[in-house]
Simulated assay, not measured.
Amino acid sequence: MAEVSAEARIEAPAEKVWDRLTDFSSYGEWNSTHTSFPKGGPQKLEVGGTFEENMRLMGFPAEVNWTIEELETARTLAIRGKGPMAVVVSTRYTLIPEGDATTVRIDGEFTGAAVSLMAGKLKDSATAALHESLRKLGGLVT
């Protein structure tokens, strides 16, 4: 298993950050691992909703089939997906309002036999991607 996380304070209200975070038509503008949604983003943002995403991790393309596991508007979005080589990926976005600013935390987890072979590199690459994504997200909403 490889666990990753990143956190940043964004100088915008949680609702504004949430709107950008869940605007799947512009996901690639801030999410540094995202390459495309082959069938479009989620049709409905609801628990149990599914979508496919093409990503790039450690320079390698990967298609992940996501399911929305937890959703609280302007607070939490948790998704779990199945990727190549039986790797399971979990991502949780948590927004903590602080007046006119928001702390955004992203937690990720990778599990599966293939992960143990490259856990260190995967952790470093994914952590860097999370920090870059938060930097870009902050730039889009402030």
Rank of each mutant, 00 (worst) to 15 (best):
Thr67Val: 11
Thr67Asp: 10
Thr67Tyr: 10
Thr67Met: 14
Thr67Ser: 13
Ile68Pro: 04
Ile68His: 04
Ile68Cys: 07
Ile68Lys: 09
Glu69Gly: 04
Glu69Leu: 02
Glu70Tyr: 10
Glu70Phe: 09
Glu70Cys: 01
Leu71Met: 08
Leu71Val: 09
Leu71Trp: 03
Glu72Leu: 04
Glu72Ser: 13
Thr73Leu: 09
Thr73Phe: 04
Thr73Met: 07
Ala74Thr: 14
Arg75Leu: 10
Leu77Phe: 04
Ala78Pro: 00
Ile79Lys: 09
Ile79Trp: 00
Ile79Pro: 01
Arg80Asn: 08
Gly81Arg: 14
Gly81Ala: 03
Lys82Pro: 04
Gly83His: 04
Gly83Met: 06
Gly83Leu: 07
Pro84Cys: 05
Pro84Val: 06
Pro84Thr: 01
Ala86Lys: 03
Ala86Arg: 00
Ala86Asp: 12
Ala86Tyr: 00
Val87Ile: 12
Val87Ala: 02
Val89Cys: 02
Val89Tyr: 09
Val89Ser: 13
Thr91Lys: 04
Thr91Asn: 10
Thr91Glu: 10
Thr91Ser: 14
Arg92Glu: 14
Tyr93Ala: 13
Thr94Pro: 06
Thr94Tyr: 00
Thr94Leu: 04
Leu95Asn: 05
Ile96Pro: 00
Glu98Gln: 15
Glu98Lys: 15
Asp100Ser: 14
Ala101Met: 07
Ala101Lys: 04
Ala101Asn: 01
Ala101Tyr: 00
Ala101Asp: 01
Thr102Leu: 13
Thr102Ser: 02
Thr103Leu: 11
Thr103Phe: 01
Thr103Gln: 07
Val104Gly: 08
Val104Pro: 02
Val104Phe: 01
Val104Ala: 13
Val104Trp: 00
Arg105Gly: 07
Arg105Tyr: 11
Ile106Tyr: 11
Ile106Cys: 03
Asp107Tyr: 03
Asp107Pro: 05
Glu109Asp: 05
Glu109Met: 11
Glu109Pro: 08
Phe110Pro: 07
Phe110Asn: 03
Phe110Arg: 03
Thr111Val: 13
